[in-house]
Write a protein that binds this DNA or RNA. Sequence first.
RNA 1: GGCCCCGUCGUCUAGUGGCCUAGGACGCAGCCCUCUCAAGGCUGAGAUCGCGGGUUCGAAUCCCGCCGGGGCUACCA
Length: 464
Amino acid sequence: MAVSDTSPVRVRIAPSPTGFAHLGTASTTLYNVLFARANAGTFALRIDDTDVERNREEYERLIYEALQWLGFEWDEGPDKGGPYGPYRQSERLDLYREAAARLIAESNAYRCFCTPEELDAERKQALAEHRPYVYSRRCLTNPPAGRTVFTVRFHVPGGEVKFTDMVRGEMTFDSDLFGDFIIIKSDGYPTYNFASPVDDAAMHITHVIRGEEHLPNTPYQLLVIDALGFMRPQAFAHMPLILAPDGGKLSKRKHPEANLVLYREQGYLPEAMVNYLALLGWNPGTEREIFTLDELIAEFSFDRVQHGGARFDRKKLDWIDGEYIRALDDDDLTTRLAAFLPELDEATIKRAAPALKTRMRTLGEAKTLLEYLWTDPLPPELSPEDRQRVKAAAVALSLVQHWDPAPIHDVLMPVVEASGLGPNATFMPIRLAVTGKKISPPIDYTLALLPKDVAMARITRSIQ
RNA sequence: GGCCCCGUCGUCUAGUGGCCUAGGACGCAGCCCUCUCAAGGCUGAGAUCGCGGGUUCGAAUCCCGCCGGGGCUACCA
């Protein structure tokens, strides 16, 4: 999707380092990247770390790692610098203080000395009287004397706030319903609804693309920008939320599956993840489901994004991931599998690749399929009939010169025919002897992946 | 409670007044293929389009009301 406008497109994501990297962050990043690339724009990463209590430095690193894993690259950020740095809000405190001071000087903001307890009482009373809560403005008209701890509140002027949302169209909010909100906390740090618009303006952000939970915040932020005389972003895009299977918002606390690194650890392919995320809340208008990032950049448009939240469906992700795995060539699959199969050398993994390909939905599943290669299964209890057939197979197998699937297959088929039964009668007991499992790739592959002597030893052992 | 967003198969969705006896995908079931498991092919079950009123010759599509879900309502972001 491309928009034509004079100023170059600049977008940003602004995650908070308050926990593991979240699926929602990946989703928001994806849409920002799609829009930026389609418009030859700039994509910036800003760290919104104004919550002193919850921020942790390692969480910032987690965000970088997760986004890099997905193949997203930012043009500006704390680690890369850029013309509008610093890109960490904790390093931009002077900017917010100056802006707040100006707002106070111009009577667009004021100091508030109310204690959290007093505020809480106000809120509870409003609730008891079934009245919508807005701050009483006590400190605007009659501040209590002799107090030193204060916050700074924005003086909401009232009136309508309008803006363009690329997903939902023209939005209008009535700011008469807003209370005077806090812009500087008592610890001197700015609140989100203050720091975010100040930075968006300072960083010349042209399009704000973020999750739907920010839709009600937008008019507050616009009020701040207007009071400061800054330039507003041209447009916003509020993307549908990713919902948990129970229909609620995916939260870090309640839903460990919202953790991005989990998907890397389980062996999902990043491009499959991106593909699935794109389909959650957006559809191309065709029946196509598999898209590369470049194809998404070309196809994506905000007018085809859903307005309601979408539940995260692991089964569908699994299917897409399987599609991507099947499409990989053997070398690529081998390289990616290496980290999941530390017990095996690359040559072995590559030999197994063709047989593995149609049997995995995630790279992590390779382990179950191949662990017989480095573990020693218990010999199975075979019936006398099974033993007979396995014995015949063992004799035939011992003659095989080149221990490869094709020769193994050739030598086994006469044994099957001689048994007068179907292949399974011969192959299943061999499978059990060699892998300890009832499920494996075709028996010729299964045998060939093992060194001949090891395979023969397991077979022989089972018929003793 | 207030403000905002949303409401089509279990899930993600197509659908913008007649092409809809509502299409696709995942999942599910069955069959085929087959040495097991997958993959692949075919078939099927599954949505009175949240409910009730309108408007119209005709509504999933337009209007109103209700109900339901979600988000925000913090000195979190």
